[in-house]
């Protein structure tokens, strides 16, 4: 009993140290479906220079820590996003950009677009705005870093715990797109 708790304590301390490194080196994969992608290049390049925080774009889901959903998600692309998310290695985080993934934004009554991303994937942070400016994006990133350091950004654990619930929601919406013929 005592042994296991000391081990737990040690693990926790170790995780805290590792979290410090994780927050300092966030590699992101941007899933650029919506209009939001257009605000990312200025955030990455010399004007706002996000590399100062150790962040950078990565080419494949295997290498990335952070999945950016930049804008509205059609039902068909939701499927690809889920594949992508499940290919990423833990620890991993999801950021939703703009109002579309939060409540549907201006596409709230569209037949082909999902309204709330949080029903299908564990979103760690949402940045509202249509479209959020680079200042807001960087503000959001720093908030995520703080959450990671405190050990609060645990979306990927929630996804594993509530896997059934997420899968049920995903199935409900994905069935709509299966070909009729």
């Amino acid at each position: 009993m005592i042994l296991s708790s000391t081990k737990e304590l040690k693990d926790k301390g170790f995780e805290q140290i590792l979290d410090f490194f994780r927050k300092k080196s966030l590699w992101m994969l941007h899933y650029c479906t919506g209009c939001g992608a257009v605000e990312l290049p200025p955030t990455m390049t010399s004007r706002w220079d996000m590399e100062r925080f150790g962040m950078g774009p990565m080419a494949t889901p295997r290498q990335a820590d952070l999945l950016l959903i930049t804008g509205y998600l059609s039902v068909k692309s939701l499927k690809r996003v889920i594949y992508t998310y499940e290919q990423m290695q833990e620890p991993k985080w999801v950021i939703a950009f703009g109002s579309c993934p939060i409540n549907g934004g201006i596409y709230y009554d569209s037949y082909s677009v999902i309204n709330r991303l949080a029903l299908y994937l564990p979103v760690d942070l949402s940045i509202e705005g249509c479209m959020p400016r680079p200042e807001a994006i960087i503000d959001g990133f720093t908030k995520l870093m703080k959450a990671i350091e405190k050990g609060e950004a645990v979306g990927y654990k929630k996804y594993k715990e509530n896997y059934e619930w997420y899968k049920k929601n995903q199935r409900e919406v994905l069935e709509r797109t299966t070909p009729v013929l």
Binding site: F21, K24, S25, E51, R52, F53, G54
Partner: peptide
């Protein structure tokens, strides 16, 4: 740009 600190690569590797 300015980029991260010069020890960024060590952080990356540990991560």
């Amino acid at each position: 740009c300015y980029a991260g600190p010069f020890y960024q690569s060590y952080i990356d590797v540990i991560k």
